[in-house]
């Protein structure tokens, strides 16, 4: 099969709308691009002459850098726009800002936004490709794709594996994209965390919900820990960091419950000593830095595929 039959989308707004075959095709495409990063000249001309705009309405360093490097390696021209440098602060609407960028012949718009649905909103209105780099608590599809890539690379498959996602699920776009992607590829998913941040409603998505981490760790093939924050808007959701660690932290003691081949993942940035013990984060089971490396290959694949559809 060739690209045109397996990939027909100009945008990537989420994993919910992708088929298992489309997800697998992105991962296979990423295989080819991963090799590029090991060469002496880490660059291919796939997107030469194309213009990519990193449009980050919500701040991010690692995702933006990863997209930027991915675009460089595909030979695209890249500009970065953040909320403070855009006209949004002058009262321009998101739609008008995006249409102005399109009028400058931007081919690919990578959007990070605090509002769920913002990438879908622009994708419906622009001819350019729109790639979701995280929208509110909705989706972060390239993060989930790189997580799937890492699992598949280490374990040879995703189907049949038990994956535990631990932490603040309610407000997490990483969790939602992972849930959609993992279920489509046939994994079993268990969500773990305080009941206020992991409401039972999630069971309707086809996952299990558990409030006892000790029950979940022994059977897990992958644990994916999410960053825990106790900022002002979270105060009413759980009592505090020390209680969180006591109930849900992946401490050294709890890490002993894991199977020896269980992978430990984290989308970063990690809070050492909070959701994960510092030594555990650096241990042999941790694939946290592999995720970062794979993110580059996966983002190259996504930009290549979507950028090739938009004209």
């Amino acid at each position: 099969m060739n690209v045109t039959t397996r990939w027909t989308r100009k945008d990537l707004v989420g994993l919910r709308e992708l088929t298992a075959d489309e997800i697998n095709f992105v991962l296979e495409t990423a295989d080819a691009f991963k090799q590029v990063g090991t060469r002496e000249i880490k660059k291919v001309p796939a997107l030469r002459g194309k213009t990519l705009v990193n449009f980050f309405v919500e701040p991010s360093t690692r995702t933006r850098t990863s997209f930027e490097l991915a675009a460089f390696r595909l030979s695209a021209d890249v500009i970065n726009i953040s909320a403070t440098t855009s006209s949004l602060t002058k009262g321009e609407t998101l739609k008008d800002t995006a249409r102005n960028l399109e009028a400058l012949h931007a081919d690919i718009l990578v959007l990070r936004h605090s509002s769920a649905g913002a990438p879908q909103f622009l994708a419906n209105r622009l001819k350019a490709s729109v790639i979701n780099a995280g929208d509110g608590a909705h989706e972060h599809p390239t993060q989930a794709l790189l997580d799937l890539y890492t699992i598949r690379e280490r374990r040879g498959k995703v189907a049949g594996l038990h994956v535990a996602i631990i932490g603040d699920i309610l407000f997490s776009r990483v969790a939602r994209s992972n849930i959609f992607g993992l279920l489509k590829l046939g994994a079993h998913v268990t969500l773990v965390g305080p009941s206020t941040l992991v409401p039972r409603e999630f069971e309707k998505l086809g996952v299990e919900v558990s409030y006892k981490i000790e029950d979940v760790l022994p059977k897990a093939d992958v644990v994916n820990l999410l960053r825990i924050q106790h900022e002002r808007q979270r105060r009413e959701y759980f009592p505090g960091i020390s209680e969180y660690i006591r109930l849900f932290g992946l401490t050294k003691e709890r890490a002993k419950l894991l199977k020896p081949d269980c992978l430990i993942m984290h989308p970063g940035p990690i809070n050492r000593g909070v959701e994960i013990d510092s030594e555990v984060a650096d241990g042999l089971q941790s694939v946290i830095l592999d995720q970062v490396t794979n993110g580059l290959a996966v983002r190259m694949a996504v930009l290549y595929l979507c950028g090739g559809i938009a004209t």
Partner: peptide, 10 residues
């Protein structure tokens, strides 16, 4: 607040 808010993260 229900299935769709959970699914869409709204």
């Amino acid at each position: 607040e229900g299935y769709w808010s959970t699914l869409l993260g709204l």
